[in-house]
Design a protein around this nucleic acid. Structure first.
Lengths: 174, 174
DNA sequence: AACCAACTATTGTTTCCACAACTGATCGGG
DNA sequence: CCCGATCAGTTGTGGAAACAATAGTTGGTT
């Protein structure tokens, strides 16, 4: 996660001594523990996925763009999607979308077409090669996900998703 | 987020039509849903935190290094920690640690000292300025965490942590 | 009709991360 | 003793993200 990056700060270090001496605050509060737990799990889950994608010369970001465009194509959107739409579906910023599309275009997985009605927008459409690449990835990725999460009972998974969704209810703040 | 990057692929796109027409596979399986749920939550949680840290010219990675070194100092380790130890506590790779320490040294938050017994290792120690900076961040960060997670009941939080821990039990695979 | 504001996408710049190759130091076997 | 293997840290390079600034388009207002 992503956010790949925060892990286990000073955890193995909090010896009984430190716990007694250092002010050590209420710093292992439930909130912090939950935060770290989500972060650790996210990076634990995403690392193997990114390795898999990298085997097909894709990053998580470019893969997501392709997924979005496949969704658009399967929904019958002939011309694909505009850049800012892609940027909305991911939470990526628009400048990044341009460069992601650059790489995908270079790889022949995606095509750009200017909109005639509004010449500002550029439609991006997944090519057949892009569809084939995604199809190639679908199965191994699915297997990876089941390898990572298949040992959980169905009830546990829904419970987990419910709790995570409940986390995201709070105001974004700041 | 770490991994900060996978979100909501083609989700708003799966119209009833697409669901009926496209082969659409068993692709919204529980495993995939849980995976995406964790990812979304991780980036939702980490984004405000990284904004807060950036206000003090820190990234998530540099902040973690500081946290690890504060932990070491509060545990009574006078000389701090060796680079490879830091790299173990984070899951960052060792080459990255060098550059992270470079920036922190430049900012005066950290000091390098060569080990006399084994002249290969370089100890990294947090300075007083580094301790002060962390102390400055502690409270706002704590408040942010409670703003993000405080609306959950204590039981829900422990349940969430338990479930996430249970996820990470599976074999790393690949 | 012309200008101004809002919008879409691109480019530029800086920072940061990932991976490979390299330098210097230590240890162990012949 | 010395030579290779291993280890610790650094450096080099390429790729990707964040953010600001820009170019080109559109639409509304005066």
């Amino acid at each position: 996660m992503p956010a790949r990056s925060r892990k286990d700060p000073e955890a193995p270090t909090l010896s009984p001594l430190a716990r007694a001496i250092g002010k050590r605050q209420p710093f292992d509060s439930p909130a912090v523990e939950a935060f770290l737990s989500v972060m650790r799990t996210a990076s634990w889950l995403s690392a193997p996925v990114e390795r898999l994608l990298k085997g097909h010369d894709l990053s998580a970001a470019t893969y997501n763009v392709l997924r979005i465009l496949r969704g658009a194509r399967m929904s019958g959107l002939e011309h694909g999607r505009a850049c800012h739409e892609i940027g909305e579906h991911m939470v990526a910023q628009v400048p990044d979308v341009t460069r992601l599309v650059d790489r995908l275009t270079l790889a022949g997985l995606v095509e750009r077409t200017r909109c005639e009605k509004d010449r500002r927008v550029v439609y991006v459409r997944i090519t057949d090669a892009g569809m084939q690449l995604l199809a190639l990835i679908d199965h191994p990725l699915m297997e990876l996900h089941t390898a990572q999460l298949g040992h959980l009972k169905h009830a546990e998974i829904t419970q987990l998703c419910d709790l995570l969704e409940r986390v995201r209810v709070a105001e974004p703040l700041d």
